[in-house]
Design a protein around this nucleic acid. Structure first.
Lengths: 234, 234
DNA sequence: CGAATTGTTTGCGCCCCGACAAACAAGCGC
DNA sequence: GCGCTTGTTTGTCGGGGCGCAAACAATTCG
């Protein structure tokens, strides 16, 4: 395997405030890994052997309920940390991570976490900042689920994805990984049927354009109005 | 004001692994404060001037939506930290905290947080453990909201409160602070009307007993069956 | 002690949205 | 190319639960 270069991780928020030398050390201890589409990076309840940084691709994080429902917790984009269960004081992963496209990630053995904490306090500080912002995300989700209708939640979810990974095209903003109606349903607590109906309706109004596992948002502003309940019910 | 004694905080999980001397130092920098019922400890979006430890009473943490809905994020019991916004890298409080009964709390000025981090690494480590467990709570909430019916969510909410602050009485487990139908509705994303109907129904079946701002769970086991969807629909 | 405030109960109607079902379309492997 | 799998669309039906409204009960306060 070609040796890894610190340029891979320099500039990422997870490695803010670290010196070049520290970056070299950190990346020297990483293994790089390719993950095929639809493969698991790690699974819920498994021993948390490693923590990860996504270099390329997109990862879906899901939790399963005893009765077979799957709920998508979040999508991970390149540059984000994953599987930092141990920072939460856990020894097992709280959720599963699935590659939605072919991915590349870095992985460090979990037993290095305490060492990292001593040697690179800035790194763990950043990791905690990540956890903090995910806590806030989770609270927003709870509030959305508590107070909004399905159409608003779906609109919010699409806008979030556009923000995170939207790719400007001639027509609008393409969410540039395979995203099915079922996936959207699992993000918003509804069924694929309802999502399908909503997208069809919105396509009719020129808000979005969607195909098989593909969604393009044409009019983010109007979708935002809808998400915030400021839209006319026509 | 009488000086504070470390016995107030020794033994709390937030101060695990700290020496008696460290506890003395920490408590020496705290202000103690009484908060009257229904008063705010802090408010959403305000400058986060202090962080708190609840010594006595119960606190409700709520977030408000632009359109006037209130969502209860969690109830705080004695011994828990509150308002640790800065640990999340925030400078303002993400939510409001209201005393549901007369309360006593300790408060430290936020600007001492960095000092604490240096002097008492065990303390911040514990604080992060708290945040981690709240992240998991929040994710459970999201999953409940996504997959469960209203009756299951209300059942879960009651059971959680019983776990947290249930007081064994002759009949069952009393949630020992004022808790209205509206409060329960704000925890579970429904309306006070629906909660009222549910409690009436459950009272008829002998599962709970409830009065004005008062709920006693008589049969936790049967309520748990209901919460997990294993109950007969009679 | 009466009036005002706050919390609870209950009825009714409607609508969002989930359940079920069936047909269709697109990609994938052989 | 042909079947098989996977994803999407659309219809119908029914019910859970919310909005609205009104009456009632418990507390508080003057």
């Amino acid at each position: 395997m070609a040796s890894l270069d610190r340029s891979l991780i320099a500039g990422l928020s997870a490695f803010q405030d670290l010196t070049a030398k520290e970056l070299d050390t950190i990346i020297g201890r990483a293994r790089s890994k390719r993950i095929a589409r639809n493969a698991f990076l790690f699974e819920e309840e498994q021993e948390a052997h490693s923590f990860f940084l996504l270099l390329d691709g997109h990862v879906r994080v899901v939790k399963s309920t005893p009765d077979g429902h799957e709920v998508t917790v979040r999508y991970i984009s390149p540059g984000e940390l994953m599987g930092i269960a141990l920072a939460l004081g856990r020894t097992t992963y709280p959720a599963s991570a699935i590659a939605v496209v072919d991915c590349v990630s870095l992985a460090w053995p979990s037993h290095q976490w305490p060492t990292f904490a001593e040697e690179f306090p800035a790194f763990v500080a950043n990791a905690y900042k990540t956890i903090g912002s995910r806590l806030q995300d989770a609270h927003s989700r709870v509030i959305e689920m508590s107070t909004e209708q399905v159409d608003q939640r779906v609109a919010h979810a699409l806008l979030k994805l556009v923000d995170q990974t939207g790719k400007k095209t001639g027509e609008g903003f393409l969410i540039d990984f395979p995203l099915s109606r079922q996936n959207i349903a699992e993000m918003t607590g509804t069924t694929l049927h309802t999502v399908s109906r909503l997208l069809s309706c919105w396509e009719g109004k020129g808000l979005v354009k969607s195909g098989r596992q593909k969604v393009t948002v044409l009019a983010p502003h109007r979708l935002l109005e809808l998400a915030e309940g400021r839209a006319e019910k026509s």
